[in-house]
């Protein structure tokens, strides 16, 4: 009994000991993974909301509508196959982002202007 007690999070009951043999390796390809971006209302950027599997772009957009806008969360959908997303390398994040730390002149609050100056 005690060997079974291994893991204790919600929805986690450990792997069953002596479960059936692993399923025979399936040769079938999986439908590609797509990333979904949704514009929640006019005037806002598209925002990454999640992923899904679809055989083609039309299907991906339809699924995105069904999966991610069931509660009227969007007015526009972008999908892109995940393999086409290039990401920055987190190990290089020091090189990429730290230099911005001392370039506060990129932020508008850096400049001290008279309060009377309006609309700027």
């Amino acid at each position: 009994m005690l060997q079974l007690i291994k893991k204790y999070y919600y929805g986690d009951y450990g792997e069953i000991e002596g479960g059936a043999a692993p399923a025979p390796g399936s040769n079938s390809r999986e439908w590609p993974l797509w990333e979904v971006f949704i514009r929640s209302k006019q005037g806002l950027d598209h925002k990454h909301v999640g992923s899904l599997h679809a055989a083609d772009a039309a299907m991906a957009i339809e699924n995105a509508r069904d999966v991610y806008t069931r509660r009227m969360e969007g007015v526009s959908i972008w999908v892109v196959e995940s393999k086409y997303i290039h990401a920055s390398n987190p190990d290089e994040s020091d090189a990429l982002y730290d230099p911005a730390n001392d370039k506060i002149y990129r932020h508008p609050t850096f400049y001290q202007l008279p309060d009377e100056l309006k609309y700027m």
């Binding site: 069953i16 479960g19 059936a20 692993p22 993974l33 899904l52 999966v67």
Partner: peptide, 29 residues
């Protein structure tokens, strides 16, 4: 679907997760 997608970010495919479920290796509530 949200959860499988979160799992896939860790380097396992949904098909692999299904296989574990179907073979009885993975558990569910």
């Amino acid at each position: 679907l949200y959860l499988y997608a979160a799992g896939e970010t860790l380097g396992i495919t949904r098909d692999e997760m299904y296989q574990q479920l179907h073979s009885g290796k993975a558990k569910y509530s």
